[in-house]
Nucleic acid binder design. Structure first.
Length: 563
RNA sequence: UGGGGCGUAGCCAAGCGGUAAGGCAACGGGUUUUGGUCCCGUCAUUCGGAGGUUCGAAUCCUUCCGCCCCAGCCA
């Protein structure tokens, strides 16, 4: 199903390493901090890490990078596990937590101190910042930089015991305060944090920082290729420094790639949180959110997301992928797999004046023209049906070939009908019903005399219709780059798409939809792909539109309007 | 202005000294009982700009320009 697309530079590196014998197997890891929900940007990293491991017969670990108890929560570890599983990846026995290595990290810190390569600094946060210098000016050595090994050992011991308050002391690597790389200016590797950790509880009150913990976690797990995003490029010398000074046997290679951006949405946790907390969406799993859980509720399939990640590849240049590519991926997947139904979102009554009596009949319909094995079903037809309001025009524009006065069209899988009369409400002027005649000879949709019609409409028998609710989703933002808009001073009110959610009531579906269960996907013919909402019930179904079908007519109509 | 990266079509992206893959989008056409799908075709004389090396440069060199990241005891 996944196409294993074109080579990218990470693959090249792996293949070289395998060929040269540097590595016999590939070991990667996906290392989220459990401090939020995963989004499509994470999916890129997940697909890269798990996908590469799978492709080369290696393995990929799921590791929670839980080194900061102030940010983390078990709720997030659960949701992350669910999301990665749902995407179709399996870490086997290799579920790890950085917090499982705290004791080892501590031992390594002692080693660094003993080697004279780490020291306890008693400057406050503000002073540390001042001593660090600026981008263009070198930093200055901390007055505590030359403390003796024993003093450092004692102090670090006291830090661990909880003798000090937060912010009073840190352990720092002794590297180079004049380095042009700010990350090398004696970075903090341990800080005092008196918070309860979601796994180690109150066992520790000192916690390692990312730079120190990450490379060591990778090393402990025998990672061969440690993939991360571009902003960590400047940290690579530090990553290597720790592993070198500590003399560990396993020294993974850090490789950076560009994170994913998608237009018409946002990926930053800050903005996403703002959307949720500001009530602009209904939660982290709102179907308009770019979160994995949101996409899932929207009806995106794991395969479509994997396909998407495969198509975008992995490179080092900043990128903004077009939303239409994601939509293409879900359409492609669902076109092959989604069973078809007929449903009318915005019903208009059609009375077939020459249809005999009050009776009805069963017509046969194909469940999926792309897959014969999905079989057929029967649909009831009768003298009163609903069609889509948009499929009738009293005064049809050019190139419109749906129903209009005097015009003949096909009702899919049923009959040709011809519009004879439009009945309007006396007071409101609204169309009450459209009166048509049908041609009994065209049963099934073909005319024995070879007569052709240009339009084929979907329809639902009024007497058999299942009334339901439908939520039409559209892109969250009306402008392609909300983050840049924000820098220009525009707020959410200016950039959010006011029509990103349209709730429709009184939609009329064919009776077969009663068999559908929450989570099922389907196509309503001529409308789009939908999924059955979790709140859906057989007698009162709720559908979420995942994505519309491509709409050539809308394009033509728009073009004509612009002329 | 210090350091680290990146510039190939509207978007993503191959290309690694031998004469610009592929996908999305767009546009045109064919098939069609979904204006869907599918099929066919069009879409970079040029790779951020300018010089240079070479028989030959997107690929090598020089220089200029543009964009992104870094001054958390976040990751």
């Amino acid at each position: 199903m996944d196409t294993q697309n074109a080579s990218h530079f990470i693959q090249d590196i792996i293949e070289q390493d395998l060929q040269s014998g540097k590595h016999e197997t590939v070991v990667t890891r996906f290392p989220p901090e459990p401090n939020g929900y995963l989004h499509i940007g994470h999916a890129k990293s997940i697909c890269l890490n798990f996908g590469l491991a799978r492709k080369y017969g290696g393995r990929c670990h799921l590791r929670f990078d839980d080194t900061n108890p102030k940010n983390e929560d078990p709720e997030y570890v659960h949701s992350i596990i669910e999301d990665v599983k749902w995407l179709g990846y399996d870490w086997g026995e290799h579920l790890y937590y950085a917090s499982d290595y705290f004791q080892k990290f501590y031992g390594y810190a002692l080693q660094l101190i003993e080697q004279g390569q780490a020291y306890v600094c008693s400057l406050g946060p503000e002073e540390i910042r001042r001593y660090r210098g600026t981008l263009t000016r070198p930093g200055q050595n901390s007055p505590y930089r030359e403390r003796g090994v024993q003093e450092n050992l004692d102090l670090f011991q006291e830090m661990k015991k909880g003798s000090f308050e937060e912010g009073t002391h840190v352990l720092r690597a002794k590297i180079d305060m004049a380095s042009s790389n700010i990350n090398m200016r004696d970075p903090v590797i341990y800080r005092i944090l008196k918070a309860e950790h979601h796994r180690t509880k109150d066992a520790w009150c000192i916690y390692p920082t990312y730079d120190y913990a990450h490379c060591l976690s990778d090393s402990i797990e025998g990672i061969t290729h440690s993939l991360c995003s571009l902003e960590f490029q400047d940290h690579r010398p530090l990553y290597d420094w720790f592993l070198e000074k500590l003399g560990v046997k396993c020294h993974p290679q850090q490789i950076e790639f560009a994170r994913l951006s998608l237009n018409y949405t946002v990926m930053s946790k800050r903005k996403l949180t703002q959307l949720v907390q500001g009530g602009h969406v209904q939660g982290w799993d709102d179907p308009r959110m770019p979160t994995i859980s949101g996409l899932r509720r929207r009806g995106y399939t794991p395969g479509s997301i994997r396909k998407f990640c495969d198509l975008i590849g992995g490179a080092k240049s900043d990128n903004v992928v077009d939303m239409t590519l994601l939509e293409y991926c879900i359409r492609e997947d669902l076109n092959r797999r989604a069973p078809r139904y007929m449903g009318v979102l915005n019903p208009v009554k059609v009375v077939i004046t020459n249809y005999p009596g009050q009776g009805s009949e069963e017509l046969e319909a194909i469940n999926n023209p792309e897959d014969e094995s999905m079989g057929t079903r029967s649909i009831p037809f009768s003298g009163v049906i609903y069609i889509e309001a948009d499929d009738f025009r009293e005064d049809p524009p050019k190139k419109y070939f749906r129903l209009a006065p005097g015009r003949e069209v096909r009702l899919r899988y049923a009959y040709f009908i011809t519009c004879r009369e439009v009945v309007r409400d006396q007071e409101t002027g609204m169309i009450k019903e459209i009166r048509c005649t049908y041609d009994p000879e065209t049963k099934g949709g073909d005319a024995p005399d070879g007569r052709k019609v240009k339009g084929t409409l979907h329809w639902v028998s009024a007497a058999h219709a299942v009334k339901s609710r439908v939520r039409i989703y559209d892109r969250l933002f009306s402008r392609p780059n909300p983050l840049q808009d924000e820098k220009k001073g525009l707020g959410l009110d200016d950039t959010l798409n006011p029509d990103s959610l349209q709730e429709m009531h009184g939609c009329m579906m064919e009776p077969a939809v009663k068999e559908l269960a929450p989570g099922d996907f389907l196509q309503f013919e001529r409308l789009g792909y939908f999924c059955v909402d979790q709140a859906s019930r057989p007698r009162s179904p709720v559908f979420n539109r995942t994505v519309s079908l491509k709409d050539t007519w809308a394009k033509i109509e728009k073009k004509m309007q612009n002329q």
